[in-house]
């Protein structure tokens, strides 16, 4: 019988810790498929975040280092400067990139570091059980915004791609979503482009993935996909935010 579907070489057989309906598994797989297709598995170095994906190094079959919360872009900068011929990427959540590590991502982007950033935006802190994230939508209930996020008390959701777009050093920014098959296929193309840019030494690339967190949203996996479509995408519009080609 012909084998038509298999695990990418860049993924280990390790069982993940992720909840049912979580977007991390899909995101990990897309990265692994792209790494296989670009034949960069032997030269890629990942920087893992703090958060639910803290164990990402168990799931990817290539070199990964852990970084302190928020610091992956700075750590990736150090690695890339020493080993410019390696492909270096960070994998970060919204707490990592848009809260505790806001300074690092802005300055790595502004320096135009030739790295790739995969940003998982699920509008909530997952690992610590559902507190407000910088990307939490207005009115969204979290464990620290019981009545819903209020702009007066908690500020507004941060659009990371739009924030970075004004920086001269940035080459490529795209926002994609993991809520449907067409969107997932598009997400893979964006991830591929972000890695290819690095291979071609084009500079800083970031892909934002709108991803589900059924556990902390209090929704079923199916409802979570609808929530991405109906709530997140209208606020975080999909598409290329910047492409200097």
């Amino acid at each position: 019988m012909k084998k038509i579907f298999k695990r990418p070489k860049s993924l280990t057989p390790e069982k993940t810790i992720y909840c049912s309906g979580c977007g991390h598994g899909i995101a990990h797989r897309l990265i692994a498929e792209v790494v296989d297709e670009l034949k960069i598995r032997e030269k890629i170095i990942g920087v893992a975040p703090v958060g639910c994906a803290v164990l990402a190094y168990d799931y990817w079959n290539f070199d990964v280092t852990e970084a302190a919360h928020g610091r992956p872009p700075a750590v990736a900068t150090g690695i890339k400067r020493v080993r410019p011929n390696r492909i270096v990427f960070t994998y970060q959540g919204d707490g990592d990139i848009a809260a505790i590590g806001t300074a690092e991502i802005i300055h790595a982007a502004n320096r135009g570091e030739n790295i790739t950033v995969i940003f998982i935006n699920n509008a909530v802190y997952g690992m610590t059980k559902g507190q407000m994230a910088p990307t939490t939508l207005l009115g969204q209930k979290t464990t620290t915004t019981r009545e819903g996020r209020s702009p007066q008390l908690d500020g507004y959701p941060i659009k990371v791609c739009e924030l970075l777009a004004v920086l001269e050093g940035v080459t490529y920014l795209e926002r994609v979503a993991l809520d449907s098959v067409p969107h997932i296929l598009k997400a893979k193309q964006a991830i591929k482009k972000a890695f290819r840019n690095q291979v071609e030494k084009k500079g800083f690339s970031l892909v934002e993935l709108l991803s589900s967190c059924p556990t902390n949203w209090g929704l079923s996996p199916q409802e979570s996909l609808t929530w991405i479509k109906e709530k997140m995408i209208p606020f975080f519009p999909l598409g290329v935010i910047k492409d200097k080609g």
């Binding site: 928020g70 848009a98 809260a99 505790i100």
Partner: peptide
């Protein structure tokens, strides 16, 4: 007054 800030 409770402030969920962005870092410690």
């Amino acid at each position: 007054e409770f402030v969920p800030v962005e870092s410690e």
